[in-house]
């Protein structure tokens, strides 16, 4: 259970900090002396945190669903024709910088949460797709051969053997995707999504370092908390399969 300690501490401090930042005026008056606007007030930090997490969560869910189904489709006999193209898309797509995807979503969909979500889903599914393919293709062919030879149907082979075996690699893909998306969602502030990037952008525009710092601390903490959460899940998973 020790693996869960770090994420719990980080999550707790993230929530506490989001709640208590507004009371920490003395610290910020030291950072930004002589200013009256020490605390970002357009939205509460908790609201921003919530909507940031929501954006990442929804995009991760959609991305995982789409990427894993696509990965399964192109590794079945009826979809295997599409495998070379799809894996090329997954690797070339990751070359495109996330901020460019975000920017290119605006001419298509305008400003706001929608283009942000669209960009997050689109970009986020690439690492998951790549890892799904790597996971499914990386299974020892002898294992699949014997699963079939035992008399498992192809659905049983997929659910009982392939997905559990590829699971760790897929999870690592989701971790990469979520890490990128937390960062990209923060930049989503510039196209009108409400996220923890708001205070940073507002601070940069108005030359208010206190705002920038508030946003930056919370974004950093969110990223660390999420990462350690994934670390804990991965370790628990690894332990479950190798007593």
């Amino acid at each position: 259970m020790r693996v869960w300690l770090a994420p719990l501490v980080l999550i707790a401090s993230l929530c506490l900090l989001a709640a208590w930042l507004p009371t920490m005026t003395p610290f910020f008056s030291w950072v930004e002396p002589g200013s009256d606007n020490l605390i970002y007030k357009r939205d509460s930090f908790l609201t921003l945190l919530q909507s940031h997490i929501w954006l990442v969560l929804v995009s991760a869910a959609i991305g995982t669903l789409v990427a894993v189904s696509a990965g399964i489709f192109v590794t079945r006999p009826f979809g295997r024709e599409f495998l070379p193209l799809v894996s090329q898309i997954a690797s070339i797509g990751q070359t495109v910088p996330p901020v460019a995807v975000l920017a290119l979503a605006v001419p298509l969909m305008g400003f706001g949460e929608k283009p942000t979500l669209f960009a997050l889903v689109l970009y986020g599914l690439l690492p998951i797709l790549r890892n799904t393919l790597a996971g499914l293709n990386g299974i020892n062919p002898a294992v699949l051969e014997s699963a079939k030879g035992m008399g498992m149907s192809s659905v049983q082979v997929l659910l009982k053997v392939e997905l559990p075996l590829a699971g760790r690699v897929i999870l690592a893909g989701i971790r990469t995707s979520v890490t990128i998306n937390i960062a990209t969602a923060a930049i989503g502030s510039t196209i009108g999504a409400r996220t923890l990037g708001d205070p940073v952008i507002a601070g940069l525009v108005n030359g208010n370092t206190a705002y920038v710092l508030q946003g930056a601390i919370l974004i950093g903490l969110l990223a660390l908390a999420t990462d350690s959460l994934f670390e804990a899940v991965e370790r628990t998973w690894a332990r479950a399969f190798s007593a």
């Binding site: 950072v31 890490t179 937390i182 960062a183 923060a186 930049i187 990037g197 940073v200 601070g203 940069l204 370092t209 920038v212 710092l213 946003g215 930056a216 601390i217 974004i219 950093g220 990223a223 660390l224 990462d227």
Partner: peptide, 14 residues
Amino acid sequence: QTIPSLALFGLLIA
């Protein structure tokens, strides 16, 4: 690497 870019840029300003 885990710290989002916007946060790291922001944290370096002060």
